[in-house]
Design a binder for these strands. Sequence first.
RNA 1: GUGGCUGUAGCUCAGUUGGUUAGAGCGCCAGGUUGUGGCCCUGGAGGCCGUGGGUUCAAGUCCCAUCAGCCACCCCA
Length: 441
Amino acid sequence: MTIQAVRGMKDLLPSDAGKWRFIEVTARAVFGAFGFQEIRVPILERTELFARSIGAATDIVEKEMYTFSDRSGDSLTLRPEATAGILRAYIENKLHAIPGPHKLCTLGPMFRHERPQKGRLRQFHQLDVEVLDDQGPQSDAELMVMLTHLLTRLGLQKISLKLNSLGCPNCRPAFRQALTSFLAGKEQQLCEDCQRRLSTNPLRVLDCKAAGCQEAAIGAPSMSDHLCEDCRTHFAEVRRLLDLAGVAYALDPRLVRGLDYYVRTTFEAVTGDLGAQNAVAGGGRYDGLLAELGGPAQACIGFGAGIERLALLIPEEPEAPRPDIFIAATGPKPRLMAFLMTQKLRRDGYWAEMTTDDKSLKAQLRKANKERARLVLFLGDRELQEDKGQIKRMDDSHQVEFEMGGLGHLFMNFDQAQADAEMQDRLWDAFFHSLMPLIRS
RNA sequence: GUGGCUGUAGCUCAGUUGGUUAGAGCGCCAGGUUGUGGCCCUGGAGGCCGUGGGUUCAAGUCCCAUCAGCCACCCCA
């Protein structure tokens, strides 16, 4: 049996590469306008980096990481998300010595060992942005403004923004306590996972989709009622700025993100057009994480967006690029001239094509048509003899003759002509002088 | 990790209660046009029927296993 790609790893074929390029250049333009600078970090890190940052009790760390030992016995992991590696690089390269905020962006593959389905792969790709050393709330709002700019520029309308505040280490314990006591006595209603979460992370019960859990959560205390003074004013200011900026969002008190490090602002961009995997982007504030990884106590916020999921939402490419000119040449001498001609045109940036072997003229035309070439230049012994080229505009079959200025005659006796390179250059110049107006028109 | 559905030509798919040389459309190649694409006509190439095992005189068809894809759960991008 032939070798297949590893499960959940997908090839990006030329037919889809245009969309990806569109997403990437658009993202770079949007992020650039907000002052973000690119950073590239390894896709492989020491396992403990992710275990410590993402949280040992999260699904990602518990069961989704691609972890293995290298030849020296170190435990390494293919990154399941981008933030941890960026923070590691930020600390290791002492970027924090320069006053912030630091706006960094990156893009590339992430790996999670899950069962593949629509919009979910084991190797997937994210756009990722981070603002390091900034407490917000302006940055919080700006990130969401930037995300909506990106989605708008990509032509995606049916996406809504969900927003929540998770509080901070000062106020969350109290809320957690309140929630735990509220759920006490309702354990039987909860799904297996949530019964376990009751002790590990009761907040997750709130966004569980299981009917019993949703029912049990009715009337549950809301984080928004338990925010401390600082968190409340922070969150209010984020919302005020979003309102002023005209960004639509929906408050979602059940939005609890799966990574442990989030505090205060969390947000997610969701769509109904992707089946069960409805999040196209998500992020939030992680003020304590940098210090936890051994860096300075600087507040940070960021988000990631799934490139595959964005690509699924972008309609088919309107039009593939087409060759500027196709040279249909028959016979050894004309083909030699055509070969040199295509190289010269390409050097000057024109997309020139010809067949790689001497097929029938009809077959060459068919190929030119299939590749949607704008123009076809006919080169045969007759053209060389008469020193006149035939050029045809394919869209309307309009065909004209043009003077080749001696180049045709030169290629009739190419062996002798080789000696005089200077004359050859002159003849090519004359030839292109006469051809270019036809190509450009 | 769990469940459901599906693997036949490059693509989309037919394939009778198991029965002899496995089909169609599209695409591809060539000819009809001795130097001109698209449309039309004619012909052609292209299949370990996902893989391995089993049942049977006989398996694309039935059984088991396995791999892969899709969808959902879980979770997230």
